[in-house]
Design a protein around this nucleic acid. Structure first.
Length: 553
RNA sequence: GCGCCUGUAGCUCAGUUGGAUAGAGCACCUGCCUUCUAAGCCGGUUGUCGCAGGUUCGAUUCCUGCCAGGCGCACCA
């Protein structure tokens, strides 16, 4: 059980005991607010519960605080309890209580931080889902990093997660893609609305080299041939680039497969059965306005063609049929208009849109280079691809920087800054802390400093820096759980940066290894053990972000 | 016009369930390497938390209105 959890239960018990004894007449608290105060003078933990109870108790908060404090003081795990300000209760833990976190970490090692908040929940996490008609660009890259990290975080909370990439391999865009490739191969003008980038020419050359006969085909035949060959190559390239980026999907889901198989038929039947389908002006509609959408949506156009929306709907229903409890969609801000219809679709299918479907909207990424904004335009060929970004700054820096911010904030990436392999880049700050500990432990072995549970005496750790670090380590499980519940992996990154600060501070003020002829003491052992536990948390945390934890830098 | 997101230090941005003196990195000034990685640490400077109201013991956080920026409102994909 975490220290935090242990404490909040203890406080609750004290309050309930006081209520039973009639010493306190107040409503039962819904939950105990317990936080780590920013100010060190306010102890290890602080609660404002007395302020919350004041109203229903009809007593001044400080009086209630005193009552609770008295109960807490008798507990072994607590060293001291103070009341401050209007009625805050500040708690300082006993040394052994605080030091116990190291034992917890070393006993669980790779599993430390893993929780069960989402145990038994099957989550489908769909992200990127680009057309296979070009390379992945910067917008996709944000999702590639955040989506993968979110998948890891959700798994850490106990969920069973499937990462899915929906391939839009059907429709007008695909045809334009084929037409553009063929035009390039034949040296004729590309279609106006087609794809213009240089990669089209490269792809076309590759195709002709492999299949020279394509040039001899009739126009309709060659359009299909180029389209299909281009599709295969481009999709493979997306897969390769993502694999290099450390983002791996369990399922690459083809839109075509919904039409080729019975996915669409099943979906339509389901919606009909639920009674939300109607025909009007020769088209088939889904009455999404039944569930808050601004307008009804067309599934089958009057010309008989199925819409993209029909595929989306079928895909959603397919996911649910495959047993996923929660379907999470990660979409770019330019698609936020989809939220209403997706939620409504879920409701039309008879599901609970408050639980079965979640849509995360990510703001677009701006990019600065050479002091000015790079305008992203496919037409002008100034798109920045995932591959280019990685070439410039490396996988770790790219992933970390993209994950570090909440997705709903528009972010500006300064490529020049990321290129610098210096501490201006927060990822190095965190990685450095890990590498530093590895070096210390390497030396520890050489100097005969033993570390590990059998050499660890928590009561020896009483330096301010040690206490701070111990407190920080104890937060990790809560941070992971919070990141999972809120779908916000950036919290892990921010936490690691704080933890790095704590370790660096500890390292500076608390000598871990003996100096000169000094003999290794139990304090050295305790500090080395504390370092080992910290290293484990850095490792686990960076793992959740898909960022490497280097042994040397 | 309607809807979504954003507005916090010179810059890039944190700040879940309302809490104590609003934080970090960069930038700027200043110290700290004859013994564990100086990609580090210590100290200093920087704020009408977009504006105005409201809710209450207490609001950067919740509510309303306004201002500014981004994005979206197809029988397109």
């Amino acid at each position: 059980m975490s220290t935090h959890h242990q404490l909040s239960e203890a406080i609750e018990r004290v309050i309930n005991d006081a209520r039973k004894a009639g010493a306190l007449i107040a409503d039962a608290p819904e939950s105990v607010p317990l936080e780590r105060p920013k100010n060190r003078e306010h102890g290890d933990y602080a609660t404002s519960i007395a302020l919350a109870l004041a109203k229903s108790a009809g007593k001044p908060p400080r009086e209630i605080a005193e009552l609770i404090a008295t109960g807490l003081r008798s507990l072994e795990i607590i060293d001291r309890v103070d009341i401050a300000g209007p009625g805050f209760i500040n708690i300082t833990l006993a040394k052994a209580t605080q030091g116990a976190i190291v034992i917890n970490i070393l006993e669980n090692n790779l599993k430390f931080g893993i929780g069960n908040e989402l145990a038994g929940v099957k989550v489908n996490l769909e992200f990127i889902s680009a057309n296979p008609t070009g390379p992945l660009h910067l917008g996709h890259t944000r999702w590639a990093a955040v989506g993968d990290a979110l998948a890891r975080v959700l798994s850490a909370a106990g969920a069973e997660v499937s990462r899915e990439f929906y391939i839009n391999d059907r429709g007008v865009q695909m045809d334009l893609f084929g037409e553009s490739l063929r035009a390039s191969a034949l040296g004729i003008a590309k279609p106006e609305a087609g794809y213009q980038g240089g990669y089209i020419d490269d792809l076309a050359k590759k195709i002709v080299l492999a299949e020279p006969d394509f040039l001899k085909l009739s126009e309709p035949e060659s359009l299909v041939a180029f389209r299909e060959a281009g599709y295969k190559l481009q999709l493979q390239e997306q897969k390769d680039v993502l694999a290099k980026f450390g983002t791996n999907f369990q399922v690459w889901f083809s839109e075509r497969s919904l039409h080729a198989g019975d996915g669409l038929t099943k979906a339509m039947a389901r919606l009909k059965e639920q009674g939300h389908i109607f025909d009007e002006e020769g088209a088939t509609w889904l009455r999404t306005t039944d569930f808050g959408d601004d307008k009804d949506r067309v599934l089958r156009k009057s010309d008989g063609e199925l819409t993209y929306f029909a595929s989306d709907t079928a895909y959603y229903i397919d996911k649910r049929n495959r047993g996923f409890d929660i379907c999470i969609y990660m979409l770019g801000a330019d698609h936020h208009g989809y939220v209403g219809r997706l939620k409504a679709t879920s409701a039309c299918a008879g599901d609970n849109p408050e639980y079965n479907i979640e849509i995360l909207i990510g703001q677009l990424v701006k990019i600065m280079e050479g002091g000015e904004e790079v305008k992203l335009s496919k037409r002008a060929g100034t798109i920045i691809t995932l591959e280019e970004l990685v070439e410039k700054v490396g996988v770790d820096a790219a992933r970390y920087t993209l994950i570090r911010y909440p997705v709903e904030t528009p972010m500006v990436l300064d490529v020049d800054l990321l290129k610098k392999r210096t501490n201006e880049n927060p990822v190095f700050y965190v990685q450095y802390a890990h590498a530093r500990i590895v070096a210390v432990l390497r030396n520890a072995t050489d100097l005969g400093v033993k570390y590990g549970l059998e050499f660890y005496k928590p009561e020896l750790l009483e330096h301010e820096r040690e206490r701070e670090l111990l407190g920080g380590l104890a937060e990790f499980p809560r941070i992971v759980a919070g990141a999972a519940q809120l779908r916000e992996p950036h919290r892990i990154a921010r936490y690691l940066e704080d933890l790095a600060g704590m370790y660096h501070g500890f390292y500076t003020d608390c000598r871990v290894l003996p100096m000169g002829d000094e003999k290794p003491s139990e304090l050295h052992f305790a500090r080395a053990t504390l370092s080992a536990a910290t290293m484990q948390v850095f490792f686990n945390g960076l793992q959740l972000l898909g960022v490497s934890a280097p042994d040397r830098m």
